[in-house]
Amino acid sequence: MTVRLNPYISFHKNAREALAFYHSVFGGEMHLSTYAEGGMPHDPAEGQKIMHGQLDAPNGMTLMISDAPAGMPIPNQSNISVSLSGDDETLLRGYWNGLAAGGQPTMPLEKAPWGDTFGMLVDKFGVSWMVNIAGQRG
């Protein structure tokens, strides 16, 4: 049996916009289901909000999102960051640049003391990201 750990990000009203943005950064296949389509009890005024969105990107990455229904609190801040790491510098720098568009770097993507290239940012939807590009191992 395969087990996977996937980030699942909740939004107030802009999950559709956020998933389209992440699709533009990561590529892959995007799937959306609204509350009206999902068969779950919901306030009719929220029928077009996203009950479940999923991006299946290349390299096996999966990102899930939803619009929280009214009455479900979403924390204003989180202690979780989504981390992207590997040794494909071109790909990871592309992800960094895409995620940084409209966002705010909190630590520039540059050589770190441990020999890798590392940076942190908050994207335009308020999601924290870390990118680590493995350095040359000797």
Rank of each mutant, 00 (worst) to 15 (best):
A112L: 01
R93P: 00
D87A: 08
G126P: 05
A100G: 02
P113G: 10
A100C: 11
L99F: 08
P105D: 07
K111W: 08
R93F: 00
I80Y: 11
Q104N: 12
L91R: 02
P75R: 02
I74Y: 04
D87S: 15
P75I: 00
G98F: 04
N97V: 08
V131K: 03
V122H: 02
S81Q: 15
R93N: 02
G102E: 12
M130Q: 15
L92H: 01
L109C: 06
T106Q: 10
R93Y: 02
Q77S: 15
D123Q: 13
G115H: 08
W96H: 00
V82W: 06
V127N: 09
G71R: 01
L121T: 12
D88M: 00
G71C: 07
G115V: 08
L121E: 14
W96L: 01
E89F: 02
S83M: 13
F125W: 15
A101M: 04
G71K: 05
A134L: 07
G86I: 09
S81C: 09
L121A: 14
L109Y: 06
Q77W: 13
Q104I: 09
I74Q: 02
V122Y: 08
G119L: 04
T106N: 11
G126L: 10
M130A: 08
G102P: 12
G103Y: 02
W129G: 00
F125G: 09
V122M: 07
M72H: 14
L84E: 07
A134C: 07
L91D: 03
N97E: 13
G126Q: 09
F125S: 05
G102C: 10
F118C: 01
S85G: 12
A100H: 01
Y95R: 04
T117W: 05
A100Q: 08
N97L: 10
E110N: 09
F118T: 07
N132D: 14
P108K: 09
T117M: 05
T117H: 11
D123G: 06
A134K: 11
S81E: 11
G119R: 01
A101G: 12
P75A: 07
I133Y: 05
G94A: 03
D116P: 10
L84G: 09
D123C: 08
F125N: 11
G115F: 06
S78D: 12
P75E: 09
I133D: 00
R93G: 04
V122F: 10
T90D: 14
E89S: 13
I133K: 01
Q77C: 09
S85M: 14
S85Q: 15
